[in-house]
Amino acid sequence: MINKVVSSVEEAVAGVVDGATVMVGGFGRAGQPLELIDALIAQGATDLTIISNNAGNGDVGLAALLAARRVRKIVCSFPRQPDSWVFDGLYREGAIELELVPQGNLAERIRAAGTGIGAFFSPTGVGTQLAEGKETREIDGRVYSLEYPIRADFALISAWKADRWGNLVYRKTARNFGPIMAAAATTTVVQVDEIVSLGSIDPENVATPSIFVQRVAVVGEREWLKDDVFVGGVDLEGRPLEASAGTDSAGGSR
């Protein structure tokens, strides 16, 4: 019997060695696998290269991993945000290396890794400093630059539900990097709200097929859902509204 469900988040992140390359899903906080990142901090791996769209928000999740000085290099599209003080400090201090990649090239490079593409020509960034030094080619009158795949030893992502084979269903815009990162890593670790029985996910609705998933950890239902139904009552960070009274719950930053 196939069972990719592990008993804890600690077990889920076992085997991440020092110097590993780790993809971390999420766009801002949506889809960020907070519990897996906390487990990775506790696990202790250091000198990591992180692939993620952002470089952490506030003091939790990826920001906490950075603050613990476990990250040597980050590959991302949008590190600077109003709440990215942890990254900003490390960057100014020269304590972290940054490879800045336009978001679409980041996504396509991750996808290329997962789909066996050796490299591809992209029009994005051509003529800008982010494509400096890259091989270019004119194809049908348009100039493209050569982009290489980004692969990883581990991908840590967050989904809504999984079955024991590792078929995944995401929720709304929290899907973001999940499906492509799942395919691009040697070991893909997923945290989900809930494990559902094999066969209860409609095959039409599987967004990441089980072949891309190695481990699944259950972290419990998100604060803003009850028995699969959206109940709200939280701010953008998922904190109950009473706890965040006085802050602008609908406001945000890139």
């Binding site: 766009f27 801002g28 949506a30 998100r222 953008l236 719950s249 945000g252 930053s253 890139r254």
Partner: peptide, 24 residues
């Protein structure tokens, strides 16, 4: 506010009838 439903500016938004979600 649904933390799983945000725009590119990381602000809370809603989905209209006919909306579709997809990966990056």
């Amino acid at each position: 506010v649904d933390p799983d439903l945000i725009n590119a500016g990381k602000q809370a938004v809603t989905a209209l009838d006919g909306a579709a979600y997809f990966h990056q």
